[in-house]
């Protein structure tokens, strides 16, 4: 599966990349919201994993922009687990929401679920 990871923290970006590559996914990295949207158009990923707080465009803005004309599943990764934020993400069309601190293994399992749906 081709996965786009949008995260401004280099260490987290590399950590997620490492885990996903280990699971056999093709990984595309984006370091800010604008970069992420450009890469969505360029690579047409099967899944997007996005942080909320990022330069230029937030993760929620990415969800809104992508869901306008695509059905690509989006997993939101956020340090904010407040109910309002989670509800807003789902209202905009996010498919899953993981709160930091998160377990890379849990992320991996959740992605496998989308991979199964993608294969159907």
């Amino acid at each position: 599966m081709r996965v786009l990871v949008a995260e401004d923290d280099e260490l987290m970006l590399r950590t997620i990349e490492f885990r996903l590559k280990k699971d056999g996914h093709e990984v595309i990295l984006a370091r800010d919201g604008r970069d992420a949207l450009q890469k969505v158009d360029e690579y047409e990923p099967d899944l997007i994993i996005s942080d909320v707080m990022m330069p230029y465009l937030s993760g929620l803005e990415i969800v809104a922009a992508v869901k306008e004309n695509r059905k690509t599943p989006i997993v939101i990764l956020s340090g904010m687990g407040h109910e309002d934020m989670v509800l807003e993400a789902f209202r905009l069309g996010a498919d899953d929401y993981l709160t930091k601190p998160f377990s890379p293994s849990e992320l991996s399992v959740r992605i496998k679920r989308f991979a199964v749906i993608n294969q159907r």
Binding site: D9, T15, K100, S105
Partner: peptide, 15 residues
């Protein structure tokens, strides 16, 4: 600074 930021981001065995 970096190990604190990383610990805040990952949980379980990884943390």
């Amino acid at each position: 600074k970096k190990i604190i930021a990383a610990k805040r981001n990952v949980s379980g065995q990884y943390g």
